[in-house]
């Protein structure tokens, strides 16, 4: 059963209420970032497989996918740390290396280490000196919420504090694109909230933000566009609401003694079906229609529950379906052989 239609949904290109400034684009209308059929192969593994996407100026985009989906590899290529095996990446209408070295990209990596035996202020000061359009160091310290630990040594900080210092390095200059890989990992709830408050202030200035995350509620709340990636391929592209809807916005559960699988598969608006003996779980993009069709056919299920899917479940549904399809493809290949 085909669950997910591979039709990208274009999200709004601007956050509501943002002041549009003339930043970001190389020539007018050109995307801030574009991936054209980008692949990265390590030996026999296709970490990224024909990935195509465009980011427009002012968007806040979440990059969502399970571990090993190819998020970090994609970000690495965007930041010129790795070269694509094939395909083309453009950043501000130039190659990624030029984008990084011109200071137009501010980035924070999950794996980015920091210099040891220096103070936070010394480190941020260094980053400011390196940037072609730096902000005042005190301003950066304040924005990243690390003014109070400016004189502490970098190697004596807690995980959350270290993460904020990394963030400071990403916003140390006036960059047009901010790329964050799992920015709030290792942060407690309070720091996470503070982090996003600061981040919203950054993007309100018209910057484009791309972030990878494991926290799905974070993508839901912070992003105005979500890219779902699995096995190196783009599975979905849309607003959080659209993603939820595409994956089947509602989950319907009930018990039914005489199960007719073929009939259930034919239900309208059905997105996913799971049968465990008499217990049926299904996902639907229109729960009312699905349920009425079931009842109209004369079925009388009991213990009916209808619940909303969070982005997390939507995301799991999308990737699970993709995994299932891949397994089927694999089996077909085996049969052909």
């Amino acid at each position: 059963m085909v669950i997910f239609v591979h039709r990208p949904v274009r999200a709004g290109t601007m956050r509501k209420g943002t002041v549009m400034t003339q930043r970001g684009t190389g020539r007018s209308g050109a995307p801030v970032v574009s991936f054209e059929q980008v692949s990265k192969v390590y030996g026999h593994v296709r970490a990224v497989d024909g990935l195509s996407l465009d980011l427009r100026q002012g968007e806040t985009v979440a990059f969502l996918g399970p571990n090993g989906a190819g998020k970090s590899t994609s970000l690495d290529m965007l930041l010129a740390l790795r070269k694509p095996t094939s395909g083309r990446i453009r950043v501000f209408d130039a190659d990624p290396y030029a984008g990084v070295k011109s200071g137009r990209i501010g980035a924070m990596l999950q794996s980015g280490g920091l210099m040891t035996t220096v103070t936070v202020r010394e480190l941020v000061g260094l980053a400011a000196k390196v940037h072609p359009r730096p902000l005042p160091v005190d301003e950066t310290l304040k924005r990243a919420g690390i003014a109070d630990i400016a004189d502490r040594r970098v190697d004596k900080l807690s995980g959350g504090q270290t993460q904020r210092v990394r963030f400071a390095l990403a916003i140390v200059g006036d960059s047009d694109l901010i790329v964050l890989d799992e920015p709030t990992a290792a942060m407690d709830v309070e720091s996470r909230q503070m982090f996003w408050a600061n981040m919203h202030a950054e993007v309100a200035e018209g910057r484009t933000l791309l972030f990878a995350t494991h926290y799905l509620e974070e993508a839901d709340q912070a992003a105005d566009r979500v890219l779902v990636i699995n096995k190196g391929r783009l599975l979905a592209d849309g607003t959080p609401a659209e993603i939820k809807q595409r994956a089947g916005a509602k989950r319907i559960s009930f018990r039914l003694d005489a199960v007719d699988e073929a009939f259930l598969l034919g239900l309208p608006a059905l997105v996913n079906l799971e049968i465990r003996r008499d217990l049926i779980h299904l996902q639907s993009s229109d729960s009312d229609r699905t349920l009425y069709a079931l009842l109209d056919a004369g079925y009388r299920p009991h213990e009916i529950e209808v619940s909303s899917l969070g982005l997390e479940q939507a995301f799991l549904a999308i990737t699970a379906e993709d995994d299932k399809k891949a397994a089927v493809d694999e089996r077909e290949k085996e049969t052909v052989r």
Partner: peptide, 20 residues
Amino acid sequence: QERKDGWIRQLRITALPASG
């Protein structure tokens, strides 16, 4: 150590020249 810690990686995503 700095290669292992990712500090070199961190520097590579700044505007510091590659040879810096």
